[in-house]
Amino acid sequence: MKHLIIYTHPRKRSFNHAILETVTESLRQEGDEVIVRDLYDIGFQPVLGPSELLGGVGEDVVREQSYVSWAEHVIFIYPLWWAGMPAMLKGYIDRVFSYGFAYKYDDGVQVGLLAGKKATLIHTQNKSSEQYEASGMGNALRLTIDEGILAYCGFEVNRHFVFDSILSSTVEHRQAWLAQLSETILFHS
Rank of each mutant, 00 (worst) to 15 (best):
L4E: 01
Y7N: 02
T8N: 07
P10W: 13
P10H: 09
R13G: 04
S14N: 10
N16G: 12
A18N: 08
S26A: 15
S26P: 03
E30T: 11
V36F: 08
I42L: 11
G49M: 15
E52M: 13
L54D: 05
G58H: 12
D60M: 06
V61N: 01
V61Y: 00
V61G: 00
V62T: 07
S66H: 08
W70R: 11
I75Q: 06
F76E: 00
F76N: 00
F76G: 00
Y78I: 04
A83W: 15
G84L: 02
A87D: 10
A87K: 01
L89V: 07
D94M: 08
R95F: 06
R95S: 07
V96G: 01
Y99K: 13
K104D: 04
Y105G: 03
L113G: 07
N126T: 10
K127S: 10
Y132Q: 10
E133N: 13
A134G: 12
A134V: 01
M137G: 04
I149D: 04
L150E: 00
C153S: 12
C153V: 00
F155G: 01
V157I: 14
N158D: 03
F163L: 08
S165Y: 04
S168M: 12
S168V: 07
V171M: 12
W177G: 01
W177C: 00
A179I: 10
L186K: 14
F187Y: 14
